[in-house]
Each structure stands twice: as structure tokens, then as C-alpha cells.
């Protein structure tokens, strides 16, 4: 079986079969990243396509094939940020109070909340909040890096994260969730 590094090297030679295998290897994960950063599934698909084209066009410049996982994720995140910048003027803040979850089982909601349900909550965040929340909480960037990536100050990043968390907490509270424990 071909390993990941050999696959990367084959992709660097633009081997079409390797590109297909590489795509199949990462398609689920990268679509997950796109879904988090985008407002809708359609937007996520746009970002996803643009990101994959960039990945295959620039995979030659990848000097360490062993770090390909982090590299593709980073590429998708940067593509999502570019998309966010490009569509800034068309964005509108969503009324957060309109969010309605399908799950009504409040007492056990934390256990039954799927990623898709949580994603629906995140999608309802204002764009700037959503970007900062994803970058900081899920992808592990610090505020300084987020500031550079989004073109905002570090303090703006901090305040936007704080507000995003507050909005999410409120919404989760409505669903009966008031405490959070990390999954072991």
C-alpha cells in the first residue's frame, strides 16, 4: 500500500491517479473545515473547490511531505479567510435569536447534540465571530496570528472570541446546556 509521503511525491509530479487518491484521503476532513468556516453548504463547497485547486497547484512547494496534513488544513483555512474577505461587503449579520434546533430533548441534549447541530449554531454566528472562534478554539491559532490573518488587531480578535462564546453559551443555555466537559 502506498504511504502518504509517496502519494505526496506522486502528486508533486502531477500524477493523476495519485491526485485522485490524495483527494479521496482528505476530502472528508477538508470539507469539515470548510463547513465550519462557511455560512452555508454552498459556500463551503466553493471554498472546498478553490482550496483543492490551490493544494494541487502548490503541492510542489511542499518541502516536507510528512507535514502534508497540517499543510492542507492550513491551505483550506487560508482559502476560507480569503473567501471571507472577498465577500465581506455582501455579508449581513444574522439575527441570532432566530436559531432553532430540531432537538427538543433538553435534559440529554449535550449527549445527543451532533456535530451538525453544533455546526448549525456556529453558522449563525456573525462572520467575524465565526472566523475568530474557529481559528482560536478549533484550529488553535493565537490572537496575534488571527489578527494577522484577518487583518484585525489582537484585541479585536479577543473581544470577538469572547462575544462568540457568549452567544453560543446563550443559545446552548436555551437548549438546557449549562456545563461543558471535555470528551475523554
Amino acid at each position: 500500500m502506498i504511504n502518504e509521503q509517496d502519494l505526496v511525491r506522486a502528486c508533486q509530479r502531477n500524477d493523476r491517479k495519485a491526485q485522485t487518491a490524495f483527494y479521496n484521503m482528505y476530502k472528508g476532513k477538508l470539507m469539515g473545515v470548510c463547513r465550519r468556516y462557511a455560512r452555508s453548504k454552498e459556500e463551503a463547497e466553493d471554498i472546498y473547490q478553490e482550496a483543492f485547486v490551490k493544494i494541487f497547484n502548490n503541492i510542489k512547494s511542499l518541502e516536507k511531505p510528512e507535514a502534508v496534513g497540517a499543510w492542507v488544513r492550513k491551505t483550506v483555512i487560508h482559502t476560507a479567510i480569503n473567501y471571507y474577505h472577498a465577500n465581506l461587503k455582501f455579508q449581513q449579520n444574522t439575527d441570532y435569536e432566530t436559531v432553532v434546533l430540531s432537538n427538543d430533548d433538553y435534559p440529554n441534549i449535550l449527549a445527543t447534540l451532533s456535530s451538525e447541530d453544533l455546526l448549525a449554531l456556529i453558522h449563525q454566528l456573525p462572520d467575524g465571530y465565526r472566523m475568530v472562534f474557529n481559528l482560536y478554539v478549533v484550529d488553535g491559532y493565537n490572537h496575534n496570528e488571527i489578527g494577522q490573518m484577518l487583518g484585525i488587531s489582537e484585541n479585536t480578535s479577543k473581544s470577538q472570541l469572547s462575544r462568540a462564546k457568549e452567544l453560543l453559551r446563550k443559545q446552548l443555555k436555551k437548549l438546557g446546556i449549562v456545563s461543558y466537559e471535555r470528551i475523554q
Binding site: 472528508g28 463547513r35 453544533l118 478549533v138
Partner: peptide, 12 residues
């Protein structure tokens, strides 16, 4: 941490 664990390896 709750959101990180939920979405770190999230696939769609």
C-alpha cells in the same frame, strides 16, 4: 474544549 473535541476531526 468541548467545541475543539467536537470539531477537531470533524468530517463531512
Amino acid at each position: 474544549g468541548f467545541f475543539h473535541d467536537k470539531f477537531n476531526d470533524f468530517e463531512s
